[in-house]
């Protein structure tokens, strides 16, 4: 009897407690979400800190970027050492890089020209816009080659695939994928009609290699091409070990790799684009300014040397 009474009393109290509290809670939640969804700041404040976003140590894109803009110091015994500021946010992924820059008004980062997207703004370097045209005619300085890596003992199907990549047909594919063709004037004639080719390596080169593989299927359907995505270092080392027939690399070979018998050939040129948020009024940098930002010497947007 008393037990039941307590239960009834408890349930009455519970109901009263809950209606008020639930209303208050939902109000708080609503306010939180409203303030969170308020979204990006519409005004760009020049006094804010620059958010530098970089790729991880060892990435081909980062290697090419630091080399091209001189973001390194010379250190005894080590040669050129990457000197990207320690404050830089590090991401190991182009998509996160794009997202961070597209949502953070004060961010600056870099990506490959082929991955450029409308959600961010590409900045001019020394007054030159980052475009396919300008990389091609050599006015846009920040470009790097994409390599395929092979060894002396190359299989016949792999040779055939490479001769396609370097032919006019293959180079057209490269251009339509948003990169700059490396050479012109070669014809492709199939030399073998069956076999298998394994291509592996850099995640930057993989998209264009996939397109090349598709186009190659139309020319020589008998040869099966398999593209494996990893990274430049893995691509080169698995080619040397014979796991892959052709390696893909977005950086030049190291002395060690050359000694082990790796041979590199340029298949395309890729531009490196400096990206900023679309509301950022600063979209024309000198190479010196970019170097200063990524070395950490320029910390605020209003301290950029004009």
């Amino acid at each position: 009897m008393t037990n039941e009474f307590i239960k009834i009393k408890g349930s009455i109290r519970q109901r009263g407690f809950n209606l008020k509290k639930a209303a208050a809670l939902s109000l708080i939640c609503l306010m939180f979400f409203l303030s969170a969804c308020k979204g990006g700041v519409s005004e760009f404040e020049e006094t804010r800190e620059i958010t530098v976003i970089s790729r991880e140590d060892g990435s081909g894109t980062r290697g090419a970027f630091t080399e091209l803009f001189g973001v390194y110091t010379n250190m005894e015994g080590h040669g050129k050492v990457d000197a990207t500021t320690e404050e830089a946010i590090i991401t190991n992924n182009t998509a996160v890089m794009l997202y961070c820059v597209s949502t953070n008004p004060y961010a600056i980062g870099y990506i490959s020209l082929g991955s450029m997207s409308d959600v961010v703004k590409s900045a001019n370097v020394d007054g030159v816009a980052a475009s396919l045209e300008n990389v091609k005619n050599g006015t846009y300085k920040a470009s790097r080659p994409f390599y395929i890596v092979t060894t002396q003992s190359l299989s016949a199907p792999a040779k055939d695939f490479i001769s396609f990549i370097l032919s006019d047909g293959g180079q057209e594919v490269v251009e339509s994928a948003g990169y700059v063709p490396a050479l012109a004037g070669r014809e492709y004639t199939p030399s073998v009609d069956s076999g298998k080719v394994v291509v592996g390596g850099s995640s930057s080169v993989t998209p264009v290699m996939e397109k090349l593989k598709e186009a190659y299927g139309a020319y020589n359907p008998g040869i099966d091409v398999e593209v494996q995505q990893s990274d430049s270092t893995t691509g080169v080392s698995s080619t040397l070990q014979g796991i892959c027939d052709i390696g893909m690399s977005s950086r030049a070979l190291t002395e060690n790799e050359k000694h082990s018998g790796a041979l590199a050939e340029t298949i395309a040129l890729d531009g490196i684009v400096i990206i900023v948020n679309s509301i950022n009024p600063n979209d024309d940098f000198t190479s010196e300014q970019i170097k200063g930002i990524f070395l950490g010497e320029t910390a605020y947007w209003d301290s950029l040397e004009k």
Partner: peptide, 18 residues
């Protein structure tokens, strides 16, 4: 976190949000 919390922290407390 990237879509909601990072912009929220950046706009409310400053810094880069990450």
């Amino acid at each position: 976190g990237l879509v909601i919390i990072v912009p929220f922290v950046r706009d409310t407390f400053g810094g880069s949000g990450n």
